[in-house]
Structures are given as structure tokens and as C-alpha cells.
Nucleic acid binder design. Structure first.
Ligand code: MN
Ligand code: MN
Ligand code: ZN
Ligand code: ZN
Lengths: 136, 136
DNA sequence: ATCCTACGATGGACTGAGTCCAAGTCAAGA
DNA sequence: TCTTGACTTGGACTCAGTCCATCGTAGGAT
């Protein structure tokens, strides 16, 4: 994620303490935080950071393709720093835990032309649901 | 969908004009309306129907397994009367149109045990994205 | 046919998630 | 160091959805 800050600087981003701390909060594996969770964690390092700035920064990271938006339920969107490694999600129906998973094969391959209604289909998002070991 | 009303009566539902008109609005294929769209259409037949009643009725239909909730974006949930025929969704990234699609094979089969993290996986929801013929 | 009452409907207040904006601040180039 | 446009801020606002006290009525009982 330190290379993320490099990439952003390279793209002409003005580097502010707020942007730095948001990028730091998003570091790690299986990270899928809501905007308010990002704000809470960022505020531990930078107490005066505003919600608006967190939303702005997350939106920019998404536009730049550095972070992916994930909406597995009808609630708040989650932000996923693992955007450079295509993957799918496994969600616990009881506690909401989310894991990154890598199914075999190309999910697009299983949608026959006859089922495409003339669409130009470019990607498939798969959400697997079940119970995690703790909740089972 | 007339059989739906029968099933509901059988389950002890008190049949009201509001519930009837909500069920009627949800009739058809490739129907994926938001709660407010259901309310607007229901209100054409029954002008005094309230938003709260539409939400209540949709929630009950979902609990009974007669209607499925679909959230393909981070916006309003959509309600899908085609709940008895398992299917997936193809969404236009530009205009939001949603079609029901039937991929070949079982999507669950493509998630190896090693990728299940000890979860008991029970279903897979697939959202295919692309451009519809009108938007391409 | 009428009565009764528990279940359902209503509208308005309320919440959660997110957007928008005018005013103030500051990163970084000159 | 100065300047300036990009960035940040708090608060108002919107949209989707929930909650609740009160009113109305479907449908069983008589
Ligand atoms: Mn992920
Ligand atoms: Mn559908
Ligand atoms: Zn769990
Ligand atoms: Zn389209």
C-alpha cells in the first residue's frame, strides 16, 4: 500500500495527511470496511478528519481503480483495497464476515450467448453465502 | 400470480385491497421494481395506499419466500416476483436494465473446498454486468 | 345481517447512508 | 516566501427505509 501512495503522487495527487491516513487504514487482506468504519479508524490517527473527506477520498480511489466498492447487502457499501487482484466474496449470512475467494474457471463462460439478450457482458460478480465456522 | 393470492390466503393472510394490488403490481417477467416504484404503480389503482404498507407487504412476501430481494447496486433494493425459479441477473452498467438469466452448471461447484474457509456455503448470487443493446 | 376484535393500514417522525455546498485551509510550484 | 487552485470542513440536505401511535376493517362468531 506504500506503493499506492507512490502511484497516487505519480498521478498528480496533492498529498494531504487526510488522504495518507485513509490509504493507510485500507491496508491489509480481506479488508472490507464501510465508509464510516474507515472514518472511525482514520479519526484515531487524525481526529479532525471529516466524513465528507473520507467519502471524497474513497470515491477518488474507486475512480482510479485502486479500491473496489462492494455491496453484499442492502446496507452501507464496503471498500476493498484488493482491487488489483480480481476475486469474489464469501459472506457469512449470520455475522456478515466477508472473505476474498477465487473460484476456478471464468464465471462469464457459463452464460451462454442465448442468455445474453444482446448485451456486451464484461464481468461477473459472485457472492457466495453461507455460515462461517463460528456461526455454524 | 393469482395462485400467489391463493397461497397467501392458505397461509392465513387477511386479504386486503392493499395486499392484493401490491401482488398484482409484481406480476410479470423480468420485473425488478423498487419499493417506491411498487408504491407508485399500486397508487394508480389505489390512490390512498401508504408507503409503509408497501414496505410491510413486500417484507412479508420476502419472508414467505414468494418474492426475492435483489440489490445489484448500492441504491434501493428491488423486488423480484420470480422467486420460485432460481436465476441470476444481467445488469446494464449504463441504464440499469435488469434481465433474468440462467447460467449453465452450478456456480457453487466452482468454489473449491480450499477456498471455503470452513464455511457451509449454501448459495451463490451472480451479477453479470455489461451494456444492453440500446446503450452499446 | 350485525357485532367484535385482532390484525392491518396510515402518515408522520425518525434513522442511516450518502451527497452537496459555501467558506476556510494548505500543498506545492514559482 | 507568496500565490493559488486544489483540498477540507461542518452542516444542511436527499434518499431509502424503519418505527410507532392511532385508526380502520376482514372475517369469524352469534
Ligand atoms: Mn474483497
Ligand atoms: Mn430476477
Ligand atoms: Zn458468521
Ligand atoms: Zn442499457
Amino acid at each position: 500500500m506504500s506503493d499506492l501512495l507512490e502511484r497516487l503522487r505519480g498521478r498528480g495527487w496533492r498529498m494531504t495527511s487526510q488522504r495518507r491516513v485513509v490509504a493507510e487504514v485500507l491496508d491489509g487482506d480481506h479488508v472490507h470496511l464501510t465508509a464510516d468504519e474507515v472514518h472511525a479508524r482514520a479519526a484515531r490517527r487524525l481526529p479532525e478528519i471529516s466524513r465528507a473527506t473520507v467519502y471524497n477520498t474513497l470515491g477518488e480511489l474507486v475512480s482510479l481503480g485502486e479500491v473496489a466498492e462492494v455491496s453484499t447487502d442492502g446496507r452501507a457499501k464496503r471498500y476493498d483495497p484488493n482491487a488489483h487482484h480480481p476475486h469474489q466474496h464469501l459472506v457469512c449470512s449470520h455475522c456478515g464476515t466477508i472473505r476474498d475467494v477465487h473460484p476456478t474457471g471464468d464465471p462469464l463462460a457459463h452464460l451462454p450467448t442465448a442468455e445474453r439478450f444482446g448485451f456486451t457482458v464484461s464481468k461477473a460478480e459472485v457472492t457466495y453465502r453461507g455460515l462461517c465456522p463460528d456461526c455454524a
